[in-house]
Nucleic acid binder design. Structure first.
Lengths: 158, 158
DNA sequence: AGGTTTTATGAATAAATATACAAAAAGACT
DNA sequence: AGTCTTTTTGTATATTTATTCATAAAACCT
């Protein structure tokens, strides 16, 4: 495994397990694991990994992008989307009985600004786009998402 | 509305509609709307609003993380509302898992003509306003209702 | 209203992050 | 092996963001 990959994997691990508030802090944590890197390198790593900075009561906190972690969840769910339809103000996803909650949860975890929220029943998910968003763009987003995750493009009528 | 609230609302609006890559950039955008503020103020606003920084192919991008900022205020509210957001045709109330039904029931019981009905999932309530109703008026109604319940008006960013 | 406390803000500056540039390391291909 | 190309990294520095300290504004009392 390349040095870069080793380091980035360790970074993911550390971000998931510790509260990291600055690049320099992470430099030290890495050093404890015998991985030497400078702040500049971490700055680049953060961009590549899509690390995001959030605010906590204790100041900044760097975490891995939720879209990434969301994708991990998705694999566990296993989508069975039957259809994705929409009118001018919302999108309706049809799925198998009992799957809607999981799909809605996944969509939520994507944390996309384009999406205001979701409501899930048993076999239907309602996706509410944000104001100012072109709804077909959001539909595209969802379809791409689902296809990516399910790998069953052909089965779907997308 | 206080100057701070006006500004923060405009910030939310701008972050949802434009790609903002730095504080200074937002200073200028705000100035175009006749809102004068310095970078220092925006730094504080970002922390309060729970704005997060993500990476795009075009560099940094600041976006709202309603879930995060919502959590900060959640404890202050009896219902545990995380956020109240809306687009041009409906309102989405986020809450903790299992609370949505109770909140929807409460909204129903208000028996307001402005509200056509509600749909509740597990952690999300959809409020459908009556035709021709000004949606922000209905949002105001809901927020006031929540504040009445919690009695913590000033602390909330609602 | 006037006095007191709390909250909000700006200017200056400290602290943190991103980047330009040069050099080293790693591959790729004879 | 050697040469060329690409990728990765560090140093130094530019840029950006957070904070300190002082002041102003707002809220809160009698």
């Amino acid at each position: 495994m390349s040095a870069k990959l080793t380091r980035q994997n360790k970074i993911k691990e550390l971000l998931n397990s510790k509260l990291v508030s600055s690049h320099e802090e992470l430099v030290k944590l890495l050093k404890e694991e015998d991985i030497i890197a400078t702040q500049a390198t971490l700055s680049r790593d953060f961009a590549e990994l899509g690390v995001i900075r959030t605010f906590t009561d204790k100041g900044a906190k760097y975490i891995l992008n939720s879209e990434e972690s969301g994708k991990q969840i998705a694999k566990l769910i296993g989508f069975e989307i039957l259809s994705v339809e929409y009118n001018e103000s919302m999108i309706v996803i049809r799925t198998l009985a009992g799957r809607a909650q999981g799909i809605a949860h996944y969509v939520d975890r994507l944390n996309r600004v384009e999406i205001l929220g979701t409501v899930a029943g048993d076999d239907t998910v309602l996706v509410i786009p944000n104001t100012h968003q072109n709804i077909s763009a959001v539909v595209g987003l969802i379809k791409r998402m689902m296809v990516e995750q399910s790998g069953t493009k052909n089965k779907l009528n997308l």
